[in-house]
Each structure stands twice: as structure tokens, then as C-alpha cells.
Amino acid sequence: MALSSIELLDDARRVDSFDCGKPALNAWLADFARRNQARGIIRVLVIHDEGTVVGYYGLAPDVIQPNSAPRAIRTGRPPDPIPCLLIGQLAVDHRYAGQGIGSGLVKDAQHRCVAGADIVGGRAVVVRAIDAEAERYLQSWGFIPARDNPAGLMRSIQDVSLWLADKGH
């Protein structure tokens, strides 16, 4: 097994055999990831094993309504809507589960979100959990549910930045 570093999805990467156990996430990678990236909608970052994608996530700009944001994100006078960065479609192939790939992807995504917010602004990192298992996983990373939708989780950019600095990541 020769896992790559995290890199942008390109045409050389094989996605057809990817299986995280969640058909919607498998289908998104196979059917929409490249097209959405080519259209400038999202950036898809992957880890591959000799060219076959074994983990991925997407990054995109996003906005949330102030009434859905927790207090830590609404503090002060945020704009309406509040600019954010979205971590989307995070998944790891079930054959590679338990090897730290998911953790590596989440850390990388948070680093990129902080760096992006430093360049263009952004008040929070937002994720949309596909199911209750994903909600629990994301909450273990410090994401808190939106006030109006528990599947929408968020964490302030300031909190992420402090966490990364404290952990030495």
C-alpha cells in the first residue's frame, strides 16, 4: 500500500471502485466530483493508493443564515448571510477504514479552510452530515449542530484556528 499525500482530484485518479458504504457519497464521487470541480463549484481533494481514490472531501464557499448559526458564529455583527467555507462529501473507502485517513482529511480540510478565510474571509467552517453516524463523527471534531438543522454542523474559523495552533497541526 502506497498512499499518496492529499492532492487535487485529476483525471489520472480512478474513482469507480470507491465504496465508503454510503451510496450517495460513492455516486457523488463517481458522477459529479470532476464535473463540479471543472465548473468551479467545488475543489475535490483526495488520497489515493496507486491511483485509486481511497478518501476524499470537497471544499467550497458557502453561506449560512444568522438565525441558524450558534452564538459563537453570530457574535458581533456578522453579515446576512454569513460567509463560510464548506467541507463537503467527506468519505473514506471502507477497505481503508481505521487507518487514520478520515482524520487526516478532516485536519487537512480545516487547515485549508483557515488559510482560505485568511485570504477571502469567512466566519465558520460548515459541514452537512449525511447521517447520524457522520453527525457524531463531526461532533467529535468540535463541530456543533446548527440551530435549525442538526445535520448542518459548524465551527467558527477562530475556534478552528486556535485548535490547530494548540495541537501543533
Rank of each mutant, 00 (worst) to 15 (best):
K167E: 14
Q89N: 12
Q158M: 08
L9T: 03
R71N: 08
L86Q: 05
N67D: 13
L153K: 04
A117R: 04
V106G: 04
R112E: 04
L9P: 06
V44F: 07
A146C: 07
Q99L: 14
G21C: 06
Q65S: 14
P79N: 01
L153I: 09
L138Q: 02
R77H: 13
A124Q: 02
A132V: 04
M154V: 12
T75S: 06
G102K: 03
F18Q: 00
Q65K: 14
N36R: 11
A165Y: 12
I101P: 04
D16A: 06
V46N: 04
Q65R: 14
N36I: 09
A91F: 07
V53W: 03
I73N: 02
A91S: 05
R34W: 09
D166C: 07
K167C: 12
G88I: 05
L45M: 10
V106P: 10
D166Q: 14
Y96Q: 06
L105Y: 08
S161D: 11
D62F: 14
V106Y: 07
Q139L: 00
P83I: 04
L162Q: 14
G100Y: 09
D166M: 10
R39K: 15
V125T: 07
L29F: 13
I87Q: 02
V160H: 05
A115C: 06
A38P: 13
L8D: 00
G55N: 08
G40V: 03
V46M: 02
I41D: 03
L59Y: 11
G121F: 10
A117P: 10
P61K: 12
G76T: 07
L162C: 11
I6V: 08
A117D: 04
V160E: 02
R13P: 00
L45N: 11
A91T: 06
A38D: 13
H111R: 15
I130V: 11
P83A: 01
R128V: 13
Q158I: 15
S17P: 03
P70G: 05
D93M: 03
A115Q: 14
I73K: 01
F32W: 14
L59I: 15
D131H: 02
P81C: 01
G58N: 10
K167Y: 11
H48F: 07
R35H: 14
V160P: 06
A97G: 12
V54H: 02
D131S: 00
I41L: 13
T52N: 11
L3N: 01
K22H: 15
E135N: 00
P150I: 06
